[in-house]
Amino acid sequence: MTERESSRYIDATAADWIARLDRGPLSQEESQALEAWLAGDPRRRGALLRADALSLLSESAGALGSQFDPAKFAPPAPPPPPAPALSRRKLLAWTGAGGLAAASIGVLAISVQPAAAITTGLGEVRLVTLDDGSTVMLNTQSSLRVRYGDKVRRVELLYGEAYFTVVPDQGRPFVVDLPGEPLRAARGTFRVRKLEGKPVDILVDQGGVSLGEAGTADAVFLRANMRLTLPETASAPLPAPEAISADHVARALAWREGKIAFEGERLDQAAAEFARYSRTRIEIRDPALASEPVTGLFAASDPAGFGRAVASVFDARIEQQGGAVILTRRPGPR
């Protein structure tokens, strides 16, 4: 009787395969060996996805730049060369799901009931695996309703922010219901943000999505590294998508790793972003200080640490009163 492999051994083997994939395209013999390995034990596909997630986390952190220092607010360094695209495509084909940049987030596999809603609380980030193998990662204070049927995989972002990884299903398109035109995706990874008082924002990480009726003049298609903000009036025509850099994408998705990334935002805007993740509020009691630009990568759950970094850089005074971090300018010389 063949001895059953331990999970630790499977994880180590999966990490070795990811390392080989990142070095370059596999030879025909290596590809066949990987396919045979994946077919040998049902646990191996999940292990390969976890190993891929760890690799993607490293790439994402590198893309933010080695100079993203909160203490110095230095500009980001140029991104490192991307991993070979072919190896990632092969990985997606073998595993049947997109790379999950969420190794530090608990994976919650659930059987979604019709019209089921998934909701996160303040500071909570949750990764959910849907019935078809697609995944959705919900950011803090977000809610999503799932309505899977025989002919369409339909979800609705009620509020908040969600990152989707869609696996292909030729018989059932994946649709995200949005104000105005629904978003359709055949395969890929993308983020949808729907915050109170702000227009819906769509960002494509990999693959592509479309809005509007296919084949019509009003249809809009977004590819990787593109962003689109929906008009506030549902009947208004869709704007053209905006091309953005890979660095911009990495910063916008830093929340998946428990981080917040800024690049030139006003300090009061940064304080408002921290308020999405913590009950500790950052109060800035000087208009000039509030308008200062901020650049850096910070832990979303540590507004006090962010306040200390700001105080150090801008020679400000910081004090903590109850549930508030208060920043003020130091008195100038008389």
Rank of each mutant, 00 (worst) to 15 (best):
M1W: 06
T2K: 10
T2F: 11
E3K: 15
E3I: 08
R4G: 08
E5C: 08
I10N: 12
A12Y: 05
D16V: 05
D16S: 12
D22I: 00
L26E: 05
S31A: 12
Q32F: 04
A33I: 02
W37E: 03
R44G: 12
G46I: 06
A47Q: 07
A47H: 06
A51D: 10
A51P: 00
D52N: 08
A53I: 02
L54T: 00
L56A: 13
L57Y: 03
S58Y: 04
S60A: 14
S60L: 07
G62C: 13
A63S: 13
P75H: 02
P75D: 03
A77G: 13
P80R: 05
P80V: 09
P82L: 02
L86C: 02
L86V: 05
A93M: 08
A97V: 13
G98S: 09
L100I: 11
A101N: 15
A103S: 14
S104W: 03
S104K: 09
G106M: 09
L108G: 01
I110K: 12
V112F: 02
P114F: 10
A115F: 09
A116Q: 15
T119H: 04
T119S: 12
T120H: 02
G121L: 06
G121P: 01
L122A: 03
V125I: 15
R126Q: 14
R126M: 13
L138E: 09
Q141F: 01
Q141S: 11
Q141M: 07
S142K: 03
G149M: 10
G149T: 15
R153H: 08
R154S: 15
G160R: 04
E161N: 06
A162I: 06
A162G: 10
V166S: 00
V166E: 00
P168A: 12
D169K: 08
P173A: 14
V176T: 11
V176A: 03
R184V: 11
G188Q: 03
R193G: 09
K194C: 07
P199Y: 07
V200I: 14
V200W: 09
D201M: 10
L203N: 09
Q206I: 00
G207A: 03
G208I: 02
S210T: 14
G212V: 12
E213M: 08
G215F: 07
A217C: 05
D218V: 06
N225A: 14
R227S: 13
L228Q: 10
L228A: 06
L228M: 11
A243W: 00
S245H: 04
S245P: 04
D247P: 04
H248K: 10
R256M: 15
K259C: 07
I260E: 12
A261E: 09
R266F: 02
A271R: 01
A271Q: 00
A272Q: 08
F274R: 01
Y277D: 07
R279N: 14
R279C: 00
A288R: 12
L289E: 06
A290L: 05
V294F: 01
T295D: 04
G296A: 05
G305T: 13
R308P: 11
A309G: 11
A316S: 14
I318R: 15
P331N: 10
G332P: 03
R334W: 06
R334A: 14
